[in-house]
Design a protein around this nucleic acid. Structure first.
Lengths: 152, 152
DNA sequence: CTTGAAAAGAACTGCCT
DNA sequence: AGGCAGTTCTTTTCAAG
């Protein structure tokens, strides 16, 4: 595990909100020079704390207005069934994230579709035909707020 | 809603995987010049399809090894209760995302803690004391895979 | 859409405290 | 660790086809 000082935490917190900020601009706010800030970021990347940079897409504006969370309980459990399920579910383009969880469900899937009829198509033809699938529970996303996280 | 051509989709797909790529490098792969690629990215930002850039943190390496999803059912529902709940839950640093959903639960929270004792502290002192909270269901995250999404 | 160029800015390197 | 100075690369804007 990596240990961070206060400045590292401030850098990660700032980059979590907006990763377009230059190391120079961030350094100014923290009382650091541009190279010093840059070297800290580099160190965090090398240590694996900072895995990469991703764009934040507005899927609704891209025509994917429906997001549904599916809780999936497998019918037959076992190592092979888990791997089969994961391989098959990863091949569905509408599935954005696959979370393997411990609790009332075995997996939680984030599924995006253009609209409700499109979602029904995905559910019937792709989800319900997955190998080993058992009970499925659904929750439709109404709104979502992403917070700064434990470093905030 | 924004309409994209095939090249736009390829750009968004590439940036979803790694947003550090320069417009020049991406353009080469797509058979576009650097300014042409850059203008497309700019257009997608202006249209709101591309909301921003965020870092992808490895929370486990930062000492937050436990992620739990909480399904929350409110006890008393009504507009005021929703807003009270949202305001209070947003103030908890361990809560990473708040999803307002429709289904068996009203909200789904992604909660991060250093370890199980730390999670218990958050649950008992911060979550269970939230205004209007009813039933709470928990799922511990074992592993997670983020896929390319509907554009992939 | 393209190429080419130019200016601004950010990233990166080496050296020094 | 940090700062300073300099180099390299990318972004951003322009002109012209």
């Amino acid at each position: 595990m990596i240990d961070l000082d206060d400045i590292d935490r401030q850098i990660l917190r700032a980059l979590s909100e907006d990763a377009t900020q230059s190391s120079g601009a961030m350094g100014r706010k923290l009382g650091l020079s541009q190279p010093a800030t840059w070297r800290r970021i580099r160190r965090l990347e090398d240590a694996g704390a900072l895995r990469g940079r991703r764009v934040d897409l507005d899927l609704a504006r891209l025509g994917f207005g429906v997001t549904v969370f599916l809780g999936v309980k497998l019918a037959a459990k076992g190592r092979l069934s888990l791997e089969d399920f994961e391989r098959a579910v990863s091949a569905i383009p509408e599935v954005q994230t696959v979370e393997h969880i411990l609790g009332a469900y075995d997996y939680r899937l984030r599924v995006t579709a253009r609209d409700i009829p499109d979602f029904e198509r995905v559910l019937r033809r792709r989800i319900m035909t997955l190998p080993g699938i058992g009970n499925v529970d659904a929750n439709v996303l109404l709104s979502e707020e992403r917070l700064s996280g434990p470093l905030g």
